[in-house]
Computed example of a mutant assay.
Amino acid sequence: MSIIPEHMLQARRKISNKYLIGQGLEVGALHYPLWIGEKANVRYVDRLSVEELRLQYPELNQYKLVNVDIIDNGEKLERITNNSVDFIIGNHLLEHCENPLATIRNHLSKLRNSGILYYAIPDKRHSFDLDRPLTSFEHLVRDDREGSEVSRIEHFHEWVVLVNKVKDDEIDASLQKLLEINYSIHFHVWNDSTFPEFLLRAQKYLNHSFEIVHVEQNDTEIIAILRKTNHGLLAKLKSYVRNSWIN
């Protein structure tokens, strides 16, 4: 794991200090939790305990991992009460999510009104995803509607071949090993143009349940701040009233 340059950390701190206030969560912080200002408190969520994370990521042995406060699926956050937190941090999380659209939907449900989502993703042009094809929005919609299982093997195969550069006669064995341990690969890939496009299309797809407050290229990553709105609720209310009149 590479060390994050100070200028990137400073940009993260500036955005965190401006938007993250109150009680929140950070999902998958591992050894690089986001800096939090005095006006914020955070609990750490991960899918595994620290001991299990050590086994999953031996390359992090030299680093201190954050204490995991809540063991939960970071895409679903089923142990978190709806409308209970002011912000959720997913720093380099969305690319690890099998269903990013459902993840955003679920995260929004956990936020209080006007709550904040802090997302950062790696720009594929500056990462080991360089040789991988960009993820289309249509692909993400299919995963959301049909279930991410329909493309799971495809993603792992792509990872083995284009990231790990495994030779042909070793592909199947490597693929099976990663599947067995449920290794957290990058399922999806964006760059500086497709990630903002994804956010805009997701905003419409998710019934304008969030507004895009801030998007910033931070060297090798892209940071986005989304704010929960009540537009989706209003749309449901209008639909209910309209149908009531019709009936």
Rank of each mutant, 00 (worst) to 15 (best):
T103E: 07
L130T: 10
L94V: 01
Y119K: 09
H139R: 15
T81I: 11
S184R: 02
Y183E: 10
N113D: 13
D123W: 10
L117V: 06
D169Y: 12
T81V: 13
L162I: 05
V150T: 12
Y183W: 08
K110H: 02
R142W: 08
G115I: 02
L111E: 00
D143F: 12
I71G: 03
L130K: 15
D86M: 07
E138Q: 15
L178Q: 10
E170P: 11
K177A: 14
D144T: 04
V160P: 09
H188C: 03
E138F: 11
H157Q: 15
Y119R: 11
N82M: 06
D131W: 12
K110W: 02
L134D: 06
S109W: 04
V66S: 13
H139E: 15
E138K: 15
R145E: 14
S84R: 05
S184V: 01
I116Y: 07
I153F: 09
S184D: 05
E78M: 02
D69T: 08
N182K: 14
F87C: 03
D172Q: 15
L117K: 08
R145P: 11
L175E: 12
I171S: 10
L108G: 01
D169C: 13
V161C: 04
F137M: 07
Y118K: 09
P133V: 03
K124N: 05
T81R: 11
E146A: 11
I89V: 07
V163A: 13
S114N: 14
N106Y: 01
L65T: 05
V166F: 05
K177I: 04
L175V: 08
E95M: 03
A120H: 08
I181Y: 03
D131I: 09
A120M: 14
N164Q: 15
D72T: 00
I171C: 07
E154N: 12
H186G: 03
F137W: 09
E154K: 14
Y183Q: 05
E138T: 15
L162T: 03
D131K: 14
E154A: 13
F187L: 01
N182H: 13
I70F: 03
K165N: 15
S109H: 04
H92S: 12
D69S: 12
S84D: 04
G147E: 08
K76M: 04
C97Y: 04
S174V: 12
L178D: 08
L111D: 00
H157V: 14
Y183V: 06
